[in-house]
Simulated scan of single mutants.
Amino acid sequence: MIAIYPGSFDPITLGHLDIITRSSQLYRRVIVVISRNPNKNPLFTVEERIAQIRKTTQHLDNVEVDSFEGLTITYARDRQAKVLLRGLRVLSDFEKELQMAHTNKTLASDIETVFLATSTEYGFLSSSLVKEIARFGGPINHLVPEHIALDVEKCYGNTLR
């Protein structure tokens, strides 16, 4: 079965990697897909994020990385996926994600949303938090893979090493 893990991944965090790694053990193929959202102002281009995620997940043979613009359900159908993966950290994530899952179900009743709770050590972690810490010169190497920390720190002119 093919599962889609959509998101902005700007940047990918250890929490995202946790969800990707665990889901790769559950599904035949996992497609990490970057949604092109014109309403967001990302730190990295889609192409940079694709390269970052590919490097981060290169040890996982059944994971691929892609991008799309439009409805996630349309992309899932195009890729013959039957599962949308969503990571949950806190209760407020669940409320938003459940609403989206119900909406997606009205658009495609044959595609299921599966929620994976983030491992405890990543329950607080978000890409926004990583960027905020880096913006103010704080260390982020315990929140993201090493190569991502270097990329983020470079964007903010940090030299914490």
Rank of each mutant, 00 (worst) to 15 (best):
S8V: 05
D10V: 08
P11V: 08
P11H: 13
P11G: 13
I12D: 05
T13A: 03
T13S: 04
L14N: 15
L14K: 13
G15W: 03
H16E: 11
L17M: 02
D18H: 08
I19W: 02
I20G: 03
I20M: 07
T21P: 00
S23Y: 01
S23G: 08
S23T: 12
S24D: 11
Q25R: 14
L26Y: 03
Y27S: 02
Y27C: 02
R29C: 00
R29S: 09
V30W: 01
V30T: 06
V33F: 07
S35L: 15
R36W: 03
R36I: 15
P38Y: 02
P38I: 08
N39R: 14
K40M: 05
K40T: 10
K40V: 07
N41M: 04
P42I: 03
P42M: 03
P42W: 01
F44Y: 07
F44K: 07
V46H: 07
E47R: 15
E47L: 11
E48W: 02
R49E: 10
I50T: 05
I50D: 01
I50A: 01
I53S: 09
R54V: 00
T56M: 12
T57H: 08
T57A: 10
Q58T: 07
H59Q: 13
N62W: 12
V63K: 02
E64Q: 13
E64M: 11
S67H: 11
S67C: 11
F68G: 07
F68E: 06
F68V: 07
L71K: 12
L71D: 09
T72L: 14
I73M: 10
T74H: 15
Y75R: 09
Y75W: 05
Y75N: 10
Y75M: 06
A76P: 01
A76G: 10
D78I: 08
R79N: 12
A81T: 10
V83K: 03
L84R: 06
L85P: 06
L85A: 04
R86M: 08
R86D: 09
L88R: 14
R89E: 00
V90R: 11
V90F: 05
S92K: 00
F94D: 11
E95K: 14
K96F: 10
L98P: 00
M100W: 05
M100Y: 07
M100E: 10
A101F: 06
H102Y: 13
H102N: 11
H102Q: 12
T103Y: 14
N104G: 04
T106S: 15
T106L: 15
L107Y: 08
D110A: 13
D110V: 13
E112C: 10
V114L: 14
V114R: 11
T118R: 05
S119M: 02
T120Q: 15
E121K: 10
Y122L: 01
Y122V: 04
L125G: 01
S126L: 09
S127P: 12
S127T: 02
S127L: 04
S128W: 02
L129W: 03
V130Q: 06
K131L: 00
A134S: 07
R135Y: 05
G138V: 09
P139E: 15
I140L: 10
N141Q: 14
N141F: 07
H142T: 04
P145T: 04
P145M: 03
E146G: 01
H147I: 01
H147E: 05
H147R: 01
H147F: 00
I148E: 07
L150D: 12
